[in-house]
Amino acid sequence: MDLLFDSVRSAIGLLLAFDSELVDIVVVSLRVSFFSTLFGALAGVPLGFLIAYNQFRWKRMVITCLNTLLALPTVVIGLLVYSFISRRGVFGSLELLYTQKAIVIGQLILIIPVIISLTISAISRIDNRYRTSALTLGANNLQVAWVICREARFGIIAAIIAAFGRVIAEVGISMMLGGNAKGFTRTMTTAMALEYDKGEFVLAVALGIVLMAFAFAINIIFNLLQGRTNADTV
């Protein structure tokens, strides 16, 4: 109990002091998570739409594979990407390892299946009559796609928020590919892992509290959107 009390007080103290180290860590975390989520959404939402909207032979198989990828551990992704981008790897000359870009690459592999999968379920929930209504009113395929995505927007945003929550709370990829370099690739989660290793539980928990605050904010947004989606379908 003392530990928790100390940690909360420390966290508040550090936050109020606008501690530059803490600010750096939070900024790196948000920056990396933002770009991962952005690129993940740009790739995942259109792919999810195409899979949900089109009928093709291996559709079931593709969805099963996607669901399997959802269970991919972050360390496996970390190892895989590491083997490609380390100095001895195929893309070694790009000098990507231990940069924020490397974390983003790894996190993309983590969340693109999440976004695709959730987009598929969001699109599949949309009544087919939206498609036929748009078609009969003279829409072309692109315009029909736009209509369907517009109707599925809450589900799609929920997918993107879920992806953001996943990357900001993720530690394996950030540690393996980012290397926890202070000021460069040290994120909230890797910093927590470090503080734990150092035996500085107070700081680790303080960072955890900051992370929880973000998670809480994200979930509030998520719930608000979900509430609206439900209200819309009634």
């Binding site: 209504s133 009969t136 009113l137 003279g138 209509v147 927007r153």
Partner: peptide, 29 residues
């Protein structure tokens, strides 16, 4: 389809205003 329009038995409205719905076919044209 540009020449034929089907109005559904129990039609769905696109999200947005009545105006947005009625102008849809005009916007795509």
């Amino acid at each position: 389809r540009q020449k034929v329009v089907l109005v559904d038995q129990s039609p769905l409205m696109f999200s947005g205003s009545v105006y947005h719905n009625v102008e849809f076919g005009l916007r795509v044209r």
